[in-house]
Design a protein around this nucleic acid. Structure first.
Lengths: 208, 208
DNA sequence: TGTTGTGAATCTCTTCACAGCT
DNA sequence: AGCTGTGAAGAGATTCACAACA
């Protein structure tokens, strides 16, 4: 079973998202051009991506939606479900708790942590909030693999240390800081300010 | 003045973020190796990036922090301030309204829109919430360049249409859908589900 | 000595072009 | 006629290696 680059994987997850909508609409076949229109990627890119996973298309007709979805999922989401722990139940954290994303059956937010005693013990959207100190125990018990950092940036490194200690192997970091973690822990940074500024630069460049 | 790739730009924004912290700490010089330790990028990468903007380092010493920051900002954030309009003031929208990101003086959230009559007229963190129908007028008046989509996915395309009509040139899309917009409008997708799943894949790949 | 700046080499990803199939 | 699958070409980004310099 080959490995796929991050870009290929991310695009494949978008294909899965599209395929779910197509299947809901009873569409049994889809061509690479259709998917291009739906996703914004090029048809060649899409064919190349899919060919990495296997030959499932039929010339003249396109790809069978269900089969293609199963194929992609089998490679990418082979195991069961991804278990996620949330750190920081402020405004952003609460928004994440209630986030109605796609593929809910594959993503389960299993526990949340905060240092504010008033929040501890509360249940938001079916998820109980624990004290930060309980994280190592709770994370192990709930088999969480990924943690989300939604705490103020002054505390993000300290929280990241706890996450590493708790055995989490991936971190989605919403704080505007670079975290220092052992290299076997993967970090995905989502810095809204950088998104805004980067997009703004792009727009300026197009004009000037 | 050359154009920079998105990757170079995004890294440069991280350098700026680091430089701000270093300047706060009274550090006047920083080497590419220091920045590598702080950002997680390689030192060579950093030197190459910086060299695209100009020669500002001195061999044996490193880069003067203030000068380097000014240099990068002059290229990337030349103009004044980026004005942002928020669409959808649910949980995620409210979290964004209160988001204390870096570089606040360069990013100004100027107005928010929602369709819920109970929210219209309210002020959250100094930003007034208007009816969606008022968006074209308000966006023009406030000179917003970028819009954020934080509405449920069923409504995201309709809201995107309004944003294009209002003259916004960039969209940060938090809904799990691919938007159909004219090609002169830049879209940045942030799909949390895809982030989680993609990160999970990466972790699985490392093990297996 | 230690660090920048950079051309060359390498690697990775995307696009092209078209054979092959239905 | 129309679409997939793919080798080859092309573009883009990163890493290497080292000259230049304080």
């Amino acid at each position: 079973m080959p490995r796929f680059s991050r870009k290929t994987r991310d695009r494949a997850l978008v294909y899965i998202r599209c395929l779910e909508a197509l299947i809901r609409d009873q569409r049994h076949l889809v061509s690479s051009r259709d998917l291009a229109a739906l996703t914004g990627f090029t048809a060649e890119q899409i064919r190349k991506d899919i060919s990495h996973f296997g030959r499932v298309g039929t010339p003249r007709l396109g790809y069978p939606t269900s089969e293609l979805k199963t194929l992609l999922e089998n490679y990418l989401l082979q195991k069961d479900v991804v278990h996620i722990a949330l750190f920081g139940v402020g405004h952003l954290g609460q928004a994440i708790l209630r986030y109605p994303g796609f593929h809910r059956e594959k993503i389960r937010l299993v526990s949340a942590f905060d240092k504010d005693p008033r929040k501890i013990g509360r249940v938001v959207d079916g998820v109980r909030i624990y004290a930060l100190e309980d994280a190592p125990r709770r994370v192990r018990r709930s088999h969480a693999e990924i943690g989300i950092i939604a705490v103020p940036s002054e505390e993000s490194q300290r929280v990241a240390d706890v996450m590493v200690l708790a055995g989490l192997r991936g971190i989605v970091n919403f704080s505007p800081t670079t975290l220092q973690v052992p290299k076997e822990v993967r970090v995905r940074d989502i810095d809204l300010s950088i998104e805004f500024l980067s997009l703004f630069c792009e727009i300026q460049d197009m004009t000037g």
